[in-house]
Design a protein around this nucleic acid. Structure first.
Lengths: 154, 154
DNA sequence: ATCCCTCTTGTTATAGTATAACGTCCGCGC
DNA sequence: GCGCGGACGTTATACTATAACAAGAGGGAT
């Protein structure tokens, strides 16, 4: 399912994610404006994490605004509503690979090509948090390393 | 053991961590210079994550250099050798709470007071990585939320 | 139709985080 | 003494992110 590092029909990824975003927006009264939709499409073009300024450059080239808030607002919208995720260790953004599914995301992040595979795992630390009276609100789980392709290319 | 959110003899934390750093440096041919040692002491003063510029301000006030590389180099030294950790979600740094022990660290991070409890858990994602041929080099596991004290103070 | 309100996008300006590149000093082995 | 490597200091710059304000679009109430 998390096929970032495997051959797959990428067009399906894109259309499924766009469809899921459209449906979710319709269902929740959110507006998937041209800017937001295009931002999601840019992230969906690859399974690689993109920096906000990379996204901004693409948007600007297509006639959208050129200043950082334009990209940050669109990215924050996508992240808030689960259509994209932020990779903390890279300060970068990636499209959600499990659109529509509720999940505490976790990631395999290649340090060479920046491609990201999204996995479904149980949220760790829950028992420890419970024991200490700590209320978990969000978890960040990222494994960095080398993907199969980049290992081979070494 | 991870007692950031509990009453404890904090002097013991500090002296144990300093001792561990001294021993590790001696054993590995590293030099725990005054700058590096003082940087570690600053982190050890509390269990809270400090930004690099917070550390830098403290160092400058004590007569060390005032420019960012001074703090970043000392912090990077401590992180590389396991005497401190970087909290990715905060772009901040915290002293290691398990000095001397090999570990893939994981953290409970309070969003209110920035205190950090370091936990020992099995590295997640290993089976998924294995299945995909992904070579994990480092894991980032951080749970953000509210610590007991900050929950109470709400 | 007009007014008001909210939301979105755009701007300017600035804040916060991090590193590249270069110079100096010091201690050590020769 | 000399050369070398490591640590620390600097200057300058790059990268990431947000605060604050302006303008236009659309909807609902009157």
């Amino acid at each position: 399912m998390p096929q970032a590092f495997e051959r797959h029909d990428h067009g399906t990824c894109i259309s499924a994610a766009l469809r899921a975003a459209e449906d979710a927006c319709a269902g929740r009264g959110l507006s998937l404006t041209p800017l937001r939709r295009r931002t999601l499409e840019i992230l969906l073009e690859s399974h690689a994490a993109l920096g906000a300024y990379d996204v901004l450059a693409r948007l600007e080239a297509e006639g959208f605004g050129s200043k950082p808030p334009v990209a940050y607002r669109a990215l924050n919208f996508l992240v808030e509503h689960g259509f994209a995720h932020r990779i903390e260790a890279l300060s970068a953004y990636v499209a959600c690979a499990r659109p529509g599914a509720e999940h505490a995301p976790s990631f395999l992040v290649c340090r060479s090509c920046r491609r990201v595979a999204e996995e479904a795992i149980a949220v760790p630390l829950a028992p420890e948090a419970e024991a200490e009276g700590f209320a978990i609100e969000r978890t960040v789980v990222e494994a960095q390393g080398l993907c199969p392709a980049c290992r081979g290319a070494s």
